Lab assay of single mutants.
Amino acid sequence: MATVKFKYKGEEKEVDISKIKKVWRVGKMISFTYDEGGGKTGRGAVSEKDAPKELLQMLEKQ
């Protein structure tokens, strides 16, 4: 499965596409929420050019 690499609050993070719950576009950025486990929801964003094609496909399906 594909992963998304991004920075959040200065920390490098990587999340599996299957854990992503919601995806939306903000200008040229793709924002998303994902399941961190333990009932927590994380947030992240990547630029449109750095987003994996699976993430862009999720955006188109909504």
Rank of each mutant, 00 (worst) to 15 (best):
M1Y: 12
M1C: 13
M1P: 09
M1I: 09
M1S: 15
M1G: 15
M1F: 10
A2P: 11
A2V: 14
A2L: 13
A2K: 07
T3N: 03
T3K: 13
V4P: 00
K5E: 01
F6G: 01
F6I: 03
F6N: 01
F6M: 01
F6L: 02
F6Q: 00
K7V: 11
K7M: 05
K7S: 07
K7I: 07
K7H: 05
Y8F: 08
Y8M: 03
Y8P: 01
K9P: 01
K9A: 06
K9L: 13
K9N: 09
G10Y: 02
G10P: 00
G10I: 01
G10T: 02
G10Q: 02
E11K: 05
E11T: 04
E11F: 05
E11N: 06
E11H: 12
E12F: 10
E12H: 07
E12D: 11
K13Q: 04
K13T: 04
K13E: 01
K13W: 02
K13M: 11
K13F: 07
K13R: 09
K13H: 05
E14A: 04
E14I: 06
E14P: 00
E14W: 04
E14K: 03
E14R: 03
V15T: 07
V15M: 02
V15C: 04
V15L: 03
V15F: 01
V15R: 01
V15P: 00
D16F: 12
D16A: 13
D16I: 10
D16S: 09
I17N: 02
I17V: 11
S18K: 06
S18T: 07
S18L: 14
S18G: 08
S18Y: 15
S18D: 06
K19W: 11
K19E: 08
I20S: 01
I20A: 01
I20Y: 00
I20G: 00
I20W: 01
I20C: 04
I20K: 00
K21S: 14
K21N: 11
K21Q: 14
K21F: 15
K21C: 15
K22I: 13
K22D: 14
V23M: 08
V23R: 01
W24I: 03
R25P: 03
R25E: 04
R25F: 07
R25H: 05
R25M: 08
V26M: 12
V26A: 11
V26D: 04
G27L: 10
G27T: 11
G27E: 07
G27W: 06
K28M: 09
K28C: 14
K28E: 12
K28V: 10
K28D: 04
K28N: 07
M29G: 14
M29Q: 08
M29T: 10
I30W: 03
I30S: 00
I30Y: 10
S31V: 10
S31R: 10
S31W: 11
S31M: 05
S31Y: 06
F32D: 00
F32I: 05
F32T: 00
F32L: 06
F32E: 00
F32G: 01
F32M: 03
T33P: 00
T33G: 05
T33Y: 11
T33D: 08
Y34E: 00
Y34I: 02
Y34T: 01
Y34L: 01
Y34K: 00
Y34H: 09
D35H: 07
D35Q: 12
D35W: 11
E36S: 05
G37Y: 07
G37N: 10
G37Q: 11
G38Y: 08
G38P: 10
G38C: 15
G39I: 14
G39P: 07
G39C: 15
G39S: 12
G39L: 13
G39F: 11
K40F: 15
K40R: 12
T41W: 14
T41S: 12
T41K: 15
T41I: 13
T41A: 10
G42I: 06
G42P: 07
G42V: 09
G42Y: 13
G42L: 13
R43Q: 12
R43H: 07
R43W: 09
R43G: 07
G44W: 03
G44T: 02
A45P: 01
A45M: 09
A45R: 11
A45N: 11
A45V: 07
V46E: 01
V46H: 02
V46R: 02
V46Y: 01
S47A: 12
E48R: 05
E48D: 10
E48W: 05
E48A: 07
K49V: 14
K49T: 14
D50G: 08
D50I: 09
D50R: 08
D50K: 12
A51E: 02
A51R: 02
A51G: 07
P52S: 03
P52Y: 02
K53T: 13
K53E: 15
K53G: 12
E54P: 04
E54L: 09
L55W: 08
L55Q: 01
L55N: 00
L55P: 00
L56M: 11
Q57A: 12
Q57E: 06
Q57W: 15
Q57N: 11
M58G: 04
M58L: 13
L59Q: 09
L59F: 09
L59C: 07
E60F: 11
E60K: 08
E60C: 15
E60D: 10
E60L: 10
K61D: 12
K61L: 13
K61A: 13
K61M: 08
Q62H: 14
Q62E: 10
Q62I: 09
Q62L: 11
